[in-house]
Design a protein around this nucleic acid. Structure first.
Lengths: 344, 344
DNA sequence: GTGAAAGCGCTAACAC
DNA sequence: GTGTTAGCGCTTTCAC
């Protein structure tokens, strides 16, 4: 049997089968007015029977609305981002939008390339979920690209502090870090070390600023506090913990700047036989889903990641305002079992 | 959502600016042969200077290659799926493909709707990462839709056992479950309970089959083993643990059918003051990233999720064969601290 | 209420 | 090696 060239039915096929013009078919299927109810229903029924599915490329080219958005994350395997993505996908699903997710791997060049790809896809909106950089120059090309995108009608929203000049969802990193640092100080800790990601990340910089504020409020000196920089990941947490143990033996509490690092810290401490919180207190940041299920369960700062994702998409979907909008979301201290009084 | 961009430069604008025809411009930009190097370079430079970005909708409509794939997951916030997604995005990024991720929420209707959306987007391939259903009828509409998609040139690959008749990446759930069950039996456990997700999921059914095999090999009776069904999530694990504690007091080991449930089980046991593994052993399945960082660290079965995602996309990208291909991936027992001998 | 026709931006024959 | 042109499938005026 000769293989007939099989292609999916087009709008014109549906129109012919239903005995109407292609224009009427289009109106019927998109729910536009100006078609009699009976004709519209007949067309829809025909389309269903033929297994017709609109070609979104054609629709978009012809000037129809764009039904897709792009989401930039550093790494989707990281729970922080997968929870944000979950929020974005949830709203997207409700709104009938598909979400294209891209990895940037915290690499500005990769980020730029991914933005270009999303622009090429003519997505309606781009959401940048990864942290911004302290040095505005690093992301300058990305900024230029995003601004061109906005000029041509695209929407942009970011999560976290960026120099991008666009709508933003801003978690209160400084206040959260201040609260968790104060919690440790209140418990009596004075020899605290910080396990940090790159200070180039605004997230890291803001959290460190919060810790400084807590020290200042307590009338304590911050400059002496060791801040160990490593990858902002579990592996980085392990590295940082090793270094803290080796080079700062008097430390009684490790303040990790995200949960992933805290998990790495806990892992290293367990391996080294340091009991938490009896000998060492540990705190995280973000409150990823497993934080409460670790043992000891992790004292951390809760950020509503899924909600942040939702808010970012909602912000991007709104009519653009004249000035960038900001949605602040709270950071709440969650005290669990990984913190206690310092050993006496 | 905004209408299609109004002001971005088109290929024709670039062509005019570079003083060539639109065809030459197209060839230059897509790296095709048949253009002199000097002209091609001039065109590319002009395009760059103008901030030209190809419109993929137009390219795709005109018959160009499709540069996007769809990925269906139950829930991206679930580490099992986010690790698979990470693998898919990694390959996608290497191949210059964008990945559209959709939530199905384990709901067949939602899954069907998402497949239709992906088809409408004319993605080049669809990857189904969620577990299949034991009852083939449940996914019959999805199957029909996917087959129509394939008939019109689309590629499809699934992860896990489905009745979809397409290329598949198959983790060895049965062998993995057999191994972990045997591990518990070897330790001397005889009163074992299973914390399972819905038996409608092939993943669950296959894992239970593996447990049965281990019991049979040991000459033990399986039918008496309590199999508690609950959501295939952390919350479901908590529910299952409560029920096991209340209704099967003699149990010395809980075999959870995924890590998420195992984490819930551990959490409930901790809350109830049952020490693990002294009083109760617990096992999981999947080996999500945190499994080794829990306390006690979780004995589980490792599935290479990221690799499964990579394989699935690679499979989908290949020229379609005449018959469905299968890539088997191993499941490896990982013994950690959550299992031990039963209390004597 | 319905249809005819002009594009949307691009690729790929097919000329030259 | 370069240009001309015919669509790809759809939405949307503009007639009727």
């Amino acid at each position: 049997m000769p293989k007939a060239p099989v292609t999916s039915p087009r709008l014109q096929d549906v129109a012919e089968a239903a005995g109407v013009s292609i224009a009427t078919a289009s109106r019927s299927l998109s729910g536009a007015t100006g078609v009699s109810a009976s004709v519209a229903e007949r067309v829809r029924e025909t389309a269903r029977a033929m297994g017709y599915v609109v070609n979104l490329h054609a629709r978009s080219l012809a000037g129809g609305p764009t039904r897709s958005v792009g989401l930039l994350v550093h790494e989707i395997g990281d729970p922080y981002f997968s929870e944000i993505a979950s929020g974005v996908l949830g709203v997207g699903s409700r709104e009938g939008l598909t979400v294209q997710i891209c990895h940037t791997g915290r690499d500005p060049e990769r980020e730029l390339a991914q933005i270009r790809t999303l622009v090429a896809h003519r997505v309606g909106a781009i959401i940048v979920a990864g942290s911004g950089m302290v040095d505005a120059a690093t992301q300058a090309p990305a900024k230029a690209e995003l601004q061109a995108f906005r000029r041509s009608g695209g929407r942009v929203a970011v999560i976290g502090r960026h120099h991008l000049g666009v709508d933003a969802v801003l978690p209160d990193n400084t206040e959260g870090a201040r609260a968790v640092a104060q919690h440790l100080l209140d418990l009596g800790h004075r020899r605290i070390a910080v396990a940090a990601g790159s200070r180039q990340l605004t997230t890291v910089a803001d959290r460190i600023a919060g810790i400084e504020a807590a020290f200042a409020a307590a009338g304590l000196d911050f400059p002496g506090v060791p801040v160990v920089e490593a990858d902002f990941t579990r592996a980085g947490g392990k590295v940082a913990a090793e270094e803290i143990l080796a080079r700062h033996p008097g430390v009684t509490a490790v303040l990790a700047l995200n949960d992933d690092m805290a998990i790495g810290v806990l892992s290293t401490l367990r391996a080294r036989g340091v009991s938490v919180p009896a000998q060492m207190s540990v705190t995280g940041f973000d409150d990823v889903a497993v934080a409460g299920d670790l043992a000891p369960s992790l004292t951390t700062v809760r950020l509503p990641m899924a909600e942040m994702g939702e808010q970012a998409l909602l912000l991007a979907l709104k009519e653009p305002g004249t000035r960038p909008r900001r949605r602040h979301v709270g950071a709440e201290l969650v005290v669990r079992d990984s913190t206690g009084r310092p050993p006496s």
